[in-house]
Structures are given as C-alpha cells and as structure tokens.
Amino acid sequence: MEMFGIIDLRERSGDFSRIAEAGKLAIITKRDTPLMVGIPFTRELLEQGVGINLAIHLFKNQLATLAKAARIADKPLLEFIQILGAMGTQV
C-alpha cells in the first residue's frame, strides 16, 4: 500500500495510476492525516461493493485481522468467512 500527499497527486499521478493498474491500494493524506483510499476499479469491486472489496484486500494482504476485515465489510464474522471461502481464500 502506497501513501500519497494530496499535493503529490499532481506531480506523481503516473505513479498513482501504476499502483492502481497493479491492483494495489493507495492512501491519500492531507497534512499526514489519511483523507481517502484509492481502490483499483475492478470487476470484483462492482460485484462486491467497496466495503467488502476493501475488507478482502486488507485481509488478504495481512493489513487487517479477520475480525477487523469483517467489521470493515459490515458483515458478521461467519458470513465474511463464507464470502472468503467462496472466493477460495484460506482463512
């Protein structure tokens, strides 16, 4: 996951695009405070929605625990585990 200052976006827009094309998330900050998350636009994002897609990404990349990812997805833990299982993701 990369971090960009809001001002960096003008000068590093190519880097930002390459990160998205690689399927990685980016955090945009303003005065070192997180402002927004850049999420690659994928078929999964459309099918699953932002919350679930973000939660899955964070869990798969070991950036969030299973319980925290379930909370981000706004799903009960068991349901989130079932979603991961349906995708073939090991818990």
Rank of each mutant, 00 (worst) to 15 (best):
M1N: 13
E2V: 10
E2Y: 13
M3K: 14
M3W: 07
M3L: 06
I6A: 11
I7K: 15
I7Y: 14
L9C: 06
R10Y: 13
R12C: 00
S13N: 08
G14R: 11
D15F: 10
S17A: 11
R18L: 14
I19Q: 09
I19W: 05
A20C: 06
E21W: 09
E21Y: 11
K24C: 00
K24N: 02
L25T: 10
L25M: 13
A26T: 04
I28S: 04
I28K: 01
R31A: 14
R31D: 14
R31Q: 12
D32T: 09
D32H: 12
D32Q: 12
L35D: 04
V37K: 01
G38I: 05
I39C: 08
I39Q: 09
T42M: 08
R43K: 14
E44D: 15
L46H: 07
L46K: 14
Q48V: 01
Q48G: 00
V50A: 12
V50I: 15
G51L: 12
G51H: 10
I52E: 01
I52Q: 04
I52G: 00
N53S: 13
A55T: 05
A55D: 04
K60P: 01
K60F: 04
L63N: 09
A64M: 13
T65K: 07
T65P: 02
T65E: 05
K68R: 14
A69M: 09
A69E: 07
A69R: 08
A69W: 06
A70M: 03
A70Y: 03
R71D: 08
R71Q: 12
A73L: 05
A73S: 09
D74L: 04
P76I: 03
L78F: 09
E79V: 10
E79S: 12
E79G: 01
F80K: 02
Q82S: 06
Q82I: 02
L84E: 04
A86E: 15
M87T: 00
M87F: 13
G88S: 13
T89K: 07
T89I: 15
Q90A: 11
Q90C: 02
V91W: 09
